Amino acid sequence: MSNARATHFSRRGMLAAGGALGLGAVLAACGDDDAKSSGSDADASKAVATPAAGPWTFKDDRGTTVKADKVPSSIVAFIGVAAALHDYGVEVKGVFGPTTTKDGKADVQAGDLDVTKVTVLGNEWGQFNIEKYAALAPDLLATTMFDASTLWYVPEESKEKILGVGAPTVGISVVDIQLDKPLQRMLELAKSLGADTTSAKVTAAKKAFEDASARLRAAAKANPDIKVLAGSASQDIFYVSGSNLSIDLEYFKALGVNFVEPSADVLKASGGWYESLSWENVDKYKADIIMMDSRTAAIQPADITEATWKQLPAVKADQVIARNAEPILSYEKCTPLVTSLAEAIENAKKVS
């Protein structure tokens, strides 16, 4: 994969981090992707939402109450939101954000969504094809938010034109709260759009998440000396995450996970998100387990060639696990993230 090469980052670029730098968010837009066929057939293995006739209302995390005469059915969403809604049987017509990789495969943030059956309005930061958006006759635009009012991946420079199409917008907050809160909010949004949130499938998925959380709490309590570091890799810099602000790390910390992280003073330079280290200084923090950003824009552990990385005790002990710094907000997708960390802590050797 190509390496990130930008060196100056906006606040939104920092917020893309989910606790480590959102490397893809800072790359310049380089044209719109070709449209995929619009519309979407629900996966046969998924429950299919059945929207009620209406009227429809939903209060989002801006405190804005959006209303419509009928339940939205022509939905456009940030790719992670679309993936979460898909898990609840709610299908979208268009998506924006990291949807496909350079080889045309579904990005990790697409989850189980069939990306060939949606219209892709933009695959990178700054891309949003307004003409294709308007052609979908959208009746809802849904995305996440990394601050109190900014809709994630909706370009500031074209925001007014996008909003001018007339579709109501919904934002779900994913900053400085614990993971279980936005999970519940996404469930509420799906319910408002016709999902059966009391189905056996959804009930089982929620219980599995709660069980995994209990397992992680027990693992952390039984192994209090095991130190965990969250990182993200680019060509020249290794980013060490702080455990505040990010919904997953805040949740794991509340369950007792012992994070090793930069001090608050060091984190100030990035607005509280991360510390940038050269590869020569990658051993600054001693950890027994390293969680590495699994998003496409980050270099993955198997592709890191720096000798200093390979000499880290956690790397030598094969105690490196994946972390999706922008979790897909369905219980089905978040349970494996919790389980993976619980297993790693249960089986970790003390190497720091």
Rank of each mutant, 00 (worst) to 15 (best):
V76S: 02
I79T: 03
D211E: 14
D283Y: 07
G126C: 07
T143C: 00
I321A: 07
N347L: 09
D114E: 05
E332G: 04
L187I: 10
A52G: 15
T150P: 05
K253E: 10
S294R: 06
E346R: 06
I299F: 06
V257L: 07
P138E: 04
A142H: 01
A317C: 04
G111F: 03
A4D: 09
D147R: 02
K181V: 13
A16H: 09
K286C: 02
T7A: 11
K117R: 12
L312K: 07
S10A: 11
T308I: 04
M14H: 12
K221T: 14
G272Y: 05
P262S: 09
A233I: 15
G22W: 01
G18I: 06
W152P: 00
W309E: 08
S149A: 04
K161L: 10
G272V: 06
F96R: 00
K159P: 00
Y331W: 11
S340E: 13
E188G: 05
Y331K: 07
Q178S: 14
E131I: 03
D103W: 05
V202S: 02
A342M: 08
N123D: 15
A167M: 06
K161A: 13
A205Q: 15
I304D: 09
S2I: 12
F96K: 00
G231A: 15
A200R: 10
S232K: 07
W309H: 13
G164L: 07
I345M: 09
D225Q: 00
D236G: 13
A47D: 15
A233W: 08
M14W: 13
S173A: 14
S352W: 08
K286T: 03
L141T: 00
A208Y: 04
A205V: 07
E250K: 13
Y274P: 04
V48D: 09
K181S: 10
L312I: 09
A297E: 12
V228C: 05
P301W: 07
P138W: 02
A148I: 01
T7W: 09
A106E: 05
L23T: 10
I299L: 14
S276N: 10
T197M: 12
S330A: 12
A287W: 04
Q184G: 14
A190W: 02
G19P: 10
D196Q: 11
E210V: 06
N324D: 15
V175R: 09
A348V: 00
T57L: 05
V92P: 01
E275C: 11
I289W: 00
D293Q: 05
E326G: 02
D236A: 15
E188D: 14
E326W: 08
T119S: 03
A6H: 08
A137M: 06
E131A: 10
L229E: 11
D32L: 13
E261V: 00
Y153W: 10
S263F: 04
E210C: 04
A49H: 06
F128S: 00
A49K: 09
A82C: 05
S243Y: 04
G54A: 12
A16P: 01
K36T: 12
E91N: 10
A148N: 12
A317T: 07
D139K: 05
K206R: 14
D293R: 03
Q319I: 14
L187R: 13
L183Q: 02
V92W: 00
E332R: 11
L187V: 13
K59Q: 07
L21G: 06
D225C: 02
G231M: 15
A348I: 11
S246H: 12
M292G: 07
K93Y: 07
T197C: 11
K46D: 14
V81L: 04
